[in-house]
Amino acid sequence: MTDAGRGTVALTGASGFIGAAIARHLISRGWRLRLLVRPGSQARLPSLPATRVITGSLADPMVLKQLLAGAQALVHCAGAVRGLTRADFDRVNVSGVQALLDAADDALRVVHISSLAARHPRLSHYAASKRAGEQLVQTCLPPARRVILRPPAVYGPGDRELRPLLDRIMQGLALIPAPRDARFSLLHVNDLATAVACLLSGSAAWGCTHEPDDGQPGGYAWQDLLAAIARLRQGSVRALTVPGPALSALGACNELLARLTGRAPMLTRGKARELRWPDWVATGNASLLAIGWRPVIHLDQGLRDTLP
């Protein structure tokens, strides 16, 4: 089957880094889009044809009915990545998922964008909330109507989470927040968007949880990333490892500051445990062979796309 004229996809999180890339790619494949955005986030939306924007919250059942009415599929990208308490994350990553499932009709297919962090829910409130969101999707939908993607660290043009770290390394200094022997997978955002489009084009590989990556066997060591950026900047990179206790102490300070200011922190003690975990290597792409997807953007090219 071809994508042209396939119908309407509802998309949450389109004002974010991953959601915007998925939106652009689905439009290029001939899908019409219906986007849910929070009030005040409209300015961050990509400018796309064949798109209807619905402003509102995952907590509003009437808004969700508008979002999903007549749609053939939902791609759920919205997620809370900053917070202090488990409730801060659950509000979007669990309750928001439940609200979408409650609003869905019996034919809607759901691509649920989770996170590799969901493999280890004990590490952080974020990881626990992502695992709980996955479990809701698995419990409430039959296999033919659900697929879960657990991407590893996603990067590319427009990234705001990894970019500060990459910029620092590009300047010649790497503050490594993990053990030197840690390994991790990477995935360029455009390859992730292509995987979503391939899944929506048919029924193969549905009913599963996939952990796609850029095809690097065994993932990367930190030295691999530093060497790639050194090639790009045509100069050496100095590496300093941040001690685990120092990272945890900084997370604790951020939590205290958050309680005083009411601003949600990114680095908490839970996030520090995630960063210190030694194995964030995805299981790879064998489970996605049936949809004909292959990653095409590997590290050197991806960094050229991402960094000035």
Rank of each mutant, 00 (worst) to 15 (best):
P245A: 01
T85V: 00
S115C: 05
G207P: 07
R304F: 04
W206Q: 09
T194W: 06
V137K: 05
L136S: 02
E274V: 11
L36I: 02
P243N: 11
L299C: 12
D305C: 12
L173G: 08
G13H: 12
R263H: 10
I297H: 08
H25T: 14
A43G: 10
M170Y: 15
I229V: 14
P143E: 02
A107S: 15
R150T: 03
L173S: 13
G292L: 08
D105C: 12
L84F: 00
L192M: 07
G284M: 02
A128R: 12
R82L: 06
L288C: 03
I291F: 01
L267Q: 10
A71C: 15
S236K: 14
W280C: 08
A4T: 13
A78T: 04
P245S: 03
P308I: 06
L247F: 11
A197G: 15
P243H: 09
L166I: 00
A221M: 08
G19E: 03
R109S: 14
L84C: 04
G133E: 00
G79A: 15
H120G: 03
H188S: 05
T268N: 09
S236I: 10
P121E: 00
I148Y: 13
E161N: 15
K271N: 04
R146G: 04
A205S: 13
V237N: 01
R163F: 10
L173I: 12
L232M: 13
R52W: 02
R163Q: 13
V147R: 12
T51N: 10
A252N: 01
W222G: 12
H125L: 01
L74T: 01
D300G: 13
R145G: 11
A230C: 12
A258Q: 02
P177Q: 03
A20M: 07
D60S: 14
A14Y: 04
S248C: 07
S47N: 12
W206V: 08
R180K: 09
G270F: 00
A21C: 11
E134W: 13
R238E: 05
L67F: 01
V296Y: 02
T306I: 11
R294A: 13
A59V: 01
R91M: 00
V9R: 07
A78F: 01
I22S: 13
P121A: 04
A71P: 05
A246D: 01
L240R: 15
R294S: 14
W206D: 01
A80M: 06
V196M: 06
E255G: 07
L101K: 13
W280F: 03
L141E: 09
V94P: 00
G244E: 14
Q301F: 09
A23C: 12
L240M: 14
V242H: 11
A99Q: 05
G158F: 09
L35W: 07
G7V: 06
G16K: 09
D224Y: 09
